[in-house]
Design a protein around this nucleic acid. Structure first.
Lengths: 333, 333
DNA sequence: TTGAAAGCGCTAACAT
DNA sequence: ATGTTAGCGCTTTCAA
């Protein structure tokens, strides 16, 4: 089969025996086109299998109806991305998602590529803390919203979870069940959420008058590091009786490593995940409100599309404790 | 802050005091540009914060380096999408993913939008069985690859899992552990994989000489339907002692509904999922090879980019049984 | 209501 | 090694 040249608007115009402008009108549903011509053009369009070139279409200006989403990962579940998509669709927008793979360079690359393609807006789950490369785009009026963590060095609308409140809730929950030696095991502190959660934990401990020595373990989420931290937490001179984990990956790795021993420790995880309810014991978690985060991000984006001069705002979305069993165990005697 | 007009190549050329063509050369890393001019242009680019307009850039032809992926869902985990992204990146391609929400109209809309934007290729997880709308694009040479299920009415390269072999393996595994009354609970048969798996199950039963009456339960994956099917399977006159579930969602819903009673039934699930190993008992599954599926899809796409005349091919990717405990239980006496 | 012509920002022949 | 000049496929003034 030989490759047929893609028909252009000119081909359609010739086929229909009308001017280029008329085809353009028909494609854009311009009501000022006579029925006769409109039909003739439509026939030509279907006959040739014409589809408009969206690149050229928007070269002159106008909305593309596309929103870019640069997120860390496409492989694991991403509830916020799902919410973004649903809400955006409700506004006639389509979300194009791409992965930053947690690499700053990659983020820059994909985000600039999106900007270059002149999407109507960009939702970003920022990696790193330097987003100066976006300044020219922001000046040019590209709407950008950051979520989960703030972007660095630029002023953009932002949606984050209330990490401190979440840690506080988890902490008080465990204290309420009699725990005094509570440990924290989470992400690296160079990551925004990792830092916020670890810092909030330290603040809780300080406020309750407990020493934190040997109880705060931020770091990379690798089996080795988690295993070492757990060993320090559980087999030290004054073992912890309860554990707060800083994200879903950490929680899962902890459970995997602990196996049956997980039943001897009270655990509250930050971040809910599918099947947390099917584990035994079922996992008590601090759940982020992904739907609200996604909806808010799209709302901020749309507001900025409408009004470039709006003051930049940061929205903090509440979290909630989901009690399922793992966090209600009293300290071992 | 007032909105600054986005600088164009012409602005850069004027600022640097060179011709437009020279700027174009610098942007495209053309080695035939003198160092002096190259530096002058680079300075102008950073000074103005210029970023090229990708739409115009590729209007003339050439690759955009973008691959569109239209998948059912962006919210749940999607290992194939992850694999697509990683492999594509290895070839200098960026994956833009968008959700079809399992709606045929939506699929058509997003796929045509991608075609209109002239991406280098499209990877599609087809919804429905009529994809004639893609014919003009295929004629025009847009590379398209379907995965997980075939596209309907068009000839495109396709990657699917070996569903029949997977069901066969699960079936023989359970038979090997002494089960005779084995039930199947899966997706609707109007869905390709739902049909393939149910049909393979029926074939296994027939080959082993067992009657299938009351044991095959395809249908929508809703809590109500699953509960009713389980009731029929477990509380009928001749209850099943083992169960094959047709996809991850069904498996999870079954476990959720059965609760502790899940421990009295041998279960093999089609599709692996995160945490299947952390459940008690851990879940024995037929795992699809997402990495190979993703890699093959990108390979087929790249081959077609190179040669439009290649004969269309369908690649069937093998599955493997992951033994974890839930499928090795003997039948209750 | 329809058409002719001028761009949109860029790349690619074709000079120089 | 650098500049000139046509377009790419479309939208958009501006005429008719």
């Amino acid at each position: 089969m030989t490759r047929r040249k893609r028909p252009t608007m000119i081909d359609v115009a010739e086929h229909a025996g009308v001017a280029l402008r008329t085809v353009s009108r028909v494609v854009n549903n311009d009501p000022t086109v006579g029925t006769t011509f409109a039909n003739r053009v439509q026939a030509a369009i279907t006959a040739l299998g014409y589809t408009p070139d969206e690149r050229a279409r928007h070269l002159r200006g106008g909305r593309s109806g596309l929103v870019g989403a640069a997120v860390r990962n496409l492989s694991a579940g991403h509830p916020v991305l799902g919410a973004l998509d649903v809400v955006a669709r409700g506004h006639g927008l389509t979300v194009l998602a791409t992965a930053t793979a947690d690499e700053e360079d990659r983020e820059r690359e994909v985000v600039l590529s999106m900007c270059g393609r002149h999407l109507d807006g960009i939702v970003l789950e920022p990696v790193g803390d330097n987003h100066h490369y976006l300044s020219p785009e922001l000046d040019a009026g590209t709407p950008v919203v950051a979520f989960d963590r703030p972007a660095g060095g630029i002023m953009v609308d932002t949606v984050v979870s209330d990490n401190a409140a979440g840690i506080g809730t988890a902490f008080r929950h465990l204290r309420g069940h009699g725990h005094r030696r509570i440990a924290y095991l989470g992400d690296e502190e160079r990551i925004f959420t990792g830092h916020e959660r670890a810092a909030a934990f330290r603040a809780c401990m300080a406020a309750s008058g407990e020493p934190v020595t040997g109880l705060v373990h931020p770091g990379v989420v690798t089996p080795g590091r988690i295993a070492a931290a757990l060993d320090a937490i559980l087999h030290g001179p004054d073992p912890a009786t309860a554990l707060i984990t800083g994200n879903a990956a950490t929680t899962q790795e902890v459970l995997r490593h602990l196996g049956a021993a997980a039943a001897t420790l009270a655990i509250v995880g930050f971040d809910d995940f599918t099947l947390a309810d099917l584990l035994r014991p079922a996992l008590t978690v601090v759940a982020q409100d992904s739907d609200t985060i996604g909806r808010t991000a799209i709302e901020l984006l749309r507001q900025r599309m409408t009004d470039h001069t709006r003051p930049v705002q940061t929205v903090t979305v509440g979290v909630r404790l989901v009690v399922r069993g793992s966090g209600e165990r009293p300290p071992a005697p």
